[in-house]
Each structure stands twice: as structure tokens, then as C-alpha cells.
């Protein structure tokens, strides 16, 4: 079962998102919404980002987090959610590097 870890866990991204936002920080949440092939993290995995680029959690094995964080800082500014796609089929994304050969869709939204 791809069960979520307990919400009481202080490493839990959604718990961290709540704490950060409640503490006055601007926060975006990135979620793996679809995977093809050998994706490192399952659908539903989450990464939490603040406007300074601090982050917690993961959407891949560290391959695309950098790109997601950059987009997330934008999303925090504009408030417009966006769907990102990374994988071998996309030249740009390949440079970012899902070297495992998989493809993932990551949704980035601002926590309002």
C-alpha cells in the first residue's frame, strides 16, 4: 500500500506545509500526479517549498527537485498553479535529468 506516513511525523511534508504557512511563510506544494516507467517516487508524493526556496519532501530521487523549486517560487508569486512534466521525451527536462528513464507530471500550487 502506498500509505501516507503518519501525519504526526515531523518529516511529513503536509505537516511541514501547515507549520510553515501558519508561521507566516508563503508556501507552495508540489505533487506527483502521474508517472510512467520507472519513476523514483510514487503518485501522490509531495514536496513543500517556501518563497526563499527552502524545501521539504521529494517528488523524485533528487533529479528534478531543483527545477520544481524554481517553478514553485514563481507559483508563490503569481498564485497560478501549473503542471510540470519531466522525462526523457522532453529535451529540456532531460537536461534537468530523470536519468532513470521515467516520466513524471508534477502539479505545483500555492497554499492559499
Amino acid at each position: 500500500m502506498e500509505a501516507s506516513s503518519a501525519a504526526t511525523d515531523n518529516l511529513d511534508p503536509l505537516q511541514v506545509a501547515e507549520t510553515w504557512k501558519s508561521g507566516g511563510r508563503d508556501v507552495a506544494i508540489a505533487t506527483v500526479m502521474e508517472t510512467w516507467g520507472s519513476a523514483p517516487r510514487p503518485t501522490g508524493s509531495q514536496l513543500v517549498i517556501d518563497s526563499e526556496g527552502n524545501f521539504h519532501g521529494s517528488v523524485s530521487g533528487g533529479c528534478v527537485e531543483g527545477a520544481v523549486i524554481t517553478e514553485a517560487v514563481d507559483v508563490i508569486e503569481t498564485g497560478e498553479p501549473r503542471m510540470l512534466e519531466f522525462g526523457v521525451a522532453d529535451e529540456t527536462a532531460w537536461r534537468v535529468g530523470l536519468s532513470c528513464g521515467g516520466r513524471i507530471k508534477v502539479f505545483v500550487e500555492r497554499l492559499g
Binding site: 500500500m1 500509505a3 501516507s4 506516513s5 503518519a6 505533487t31 500526479m33 501522490g44 502539479f107
Partner: peptide, 8 residues
Amino acid sequence: FFNVHVPP
């Protein structure tokens, strides 16, 4: 998108 949270 359905993000399912089921207790372990």
C-alpha cells in the same frame, strides 16, 4: 487528482 491518504 485524487490524493488518497489511508492510515498505514
